[in-house]
Design a protein around this nucleic acid. Sequence first.
DNA 1: GTCTATAGAAAGATAGAC
DNA 2: GTCTATCTTTCTATAGAC
Lengths: 194, 194
Amino acid sequence: MPEDSRPRRRGAAATRKAILESARKAFARSGYDGVGVREIAADAGCTAILVNRYFGSKEQLFQEVVVDAMNSAEVLRRDVFGDKDRARALAEALVDRTAYGEPALEGLLIVLRALSNPAATRTAREQIENHHHRQLTDVVRGPHAAERAALIVSVIVGFQVMRQMYGIEALASADPQVLTDLLTAQLEQLFLGD
Amino acid sequence: MPEDSRPRRRGAAATRKAILESARKAFARSGYDGVGVREIAADAGCTAILVNRYFGSKEQLFQEVVVDAMNSAEVLRRDVFGDKDRARALAEALVDRTAYGEPALEGLLIVLRALSNPAATRTAREQIENHHHRQLTDVVRGPHAAERAALIVSVIVGFQVMRQMYGIEALASADPQVLTDLLTAQLEQLFLGD
DNA sequence: GTCTATAGAAAGATAGAC
DNA sequence: GTCTATCTTTCTATAGAC
């Protein structure tokens, strides 16, 4: 049993993990520029110095958070990759998880709230290309698969921004079934090659 | 003829306008959180104090910049509102002005690079609803016009983010004609009500 | 109408103690 | 393994001179 002296010593690995999780939530909520390492550290139950000790810098921390969040992509799972009706499965998942203010779809949420930061934007591009885009390109058939896969990601991004992040009334308060149907038609075009 | 003492006195109106223009470029380039009022003032040929004197605060300055930029919307002009083939006109304009790194489509560009800031996000929602969305709703016919109009804006936003801001390779280096055709099909669905 | 100078807060990052 | 304390920079915003 570990001692419980005032400076909690729970081990580097546990602290590192706590920081990573705190950072994920903070970046999703407030964006890269909207949160400081002090705040991230406080929520993780430690101080800023450990953030820099374990991750090198805020920028490297962000990078690891993005990679982490993208690896657990929520909308592009079996939903889309096992099913027959991919377009509808994706549309349903998307509408379901983009209610206004929801902290879901964290991977994209985080990179979208980091568009004011050049370094974060580079990380975002790499990760989108390595995860969402690559996975979708494998699934889209027909000519211009790469372009159509990128447009599918565009649809996801645009919808998420407008509905979840800006909370545009026409999307935030719409009938989910109507949105699902409209999105399904959009995505079918892109999945099936017109 | 005005005197040319070291502190340039060109009149409040001219200085105000210079600040507004400098701010527009700066916000489009670096985002709300990515640029300071000092820098904006320097590019306008004055100091930070005048920014606050004429606009009250950075936040109010941002608000005025967004309203200004949205009022000169570039993609939703006669292109879309006079033409027969609205979908293709919009698709062409969109592809034309979203080359990677282009400073075009400034209105949306600015609000998208401000997603890390809550106050700026509120301004963005209001302006998108008052400009792009309202205008499109007038033009879209059929059921669920409000939802479909919002999805048209979503397509624009998603495409702009992926191609112009992230510079996703599959869109940044694609054949413009291919992109135009794919986008036209997407937009036709939304304009015409499936 | 515009400046220099500065207040006051908060950021990222680090030295050195324990 | 973790802290307090601090350095340095940068931010918004303002007081007061000219």
